[in-house]
Design a protein around this nucleic acid. Structure first.
Lengths: 110, 110
DNA sequence: AATGCATATCGTAAATATACGATATAGTCA
DNA sequence: TGACTATATCGTATATTTACGATATGCATT
């Protein structure tokens, strides 16, 4: 049981859902905020600030990378992450469309 | 291990993350779209349209309810769900603020 | 009262996510 | 070269999510 049925939904909804899922953990939102604030792209500082082990932070960074919400370049010893403006902007637009769709009809349960 | 550390993040980020997590499955986005389109609030029709068992759809509805993304009233035999405009609107605004925060600084990794 | 219908809940199996410590990797500096 | 540092990956325990069938609930109709 519990086979994955996500693939049976529309591409568009899968795409939104996948990005939403990645935003669906407060640690990842916190990481995004940190990267956005100090755009010097440090990574070790994230570990200092968050109540998580270094390996856990690294895992969250990997998820954010895979979703392309951030981009990273390895700069010698310390790797350099920052917000991927393009993905964030596109996701923001897609959500706007979704929410507009959800709000067009009047609410029938009032 | 794997104790839940979500509570150690800011209230605001927890709130956004929780709603994002609920949007993080294409079935739930599809359900929202269906409810938004035909605002007659049927429930059985969702089961017909989606590639999921009735009990699974019911579970997804419960999650959407708990997140207050939808509201439901039991109308005799068939229960009646619809979009909760208030929550959707508020979530939309909160995401706008978040995305604005994430995009203020120029991207340093270019 | 008995039957039928729509929906919710329970029980459960499997998949995935979360978190950590330990270890590997790879650059830097003495 | 060797030690140190930063980050990534591995292994693993536990928690949570996803999905289903079976069953319960509760209204409606006969």
């Amino acid at each position: 049981m519990a086979q994955n049925k996500k693939a049976e939904f529309s591409e568009a909804d899968q795409k939104i859902a996948d990005l939403a899922r990645v935003l669906g953990h407060p640690a990842r939102i916190a990481i995004l905020r940190i990267l956005a604030e100090k755009n010097t792209c440090i990574c070790g500082e994230i570990v200092e600030v968050l109540p998580l082990a270094q390996s856990t932070v690294s895992q969250h960074l990997k998820e954010l990378l895979q979703a392309k919400l951030i981009q990273g370049t390895v700069d010698g010893l310390k790797s350099c992450y920052c917000i991927n403006h393009e993905t964030v902007t596109e996701f923001s637009k897609e959500l706007d469309f979704l929410f507009k769709d959800l709000l067009t009809q009047p609410n029938c349960c009032n």
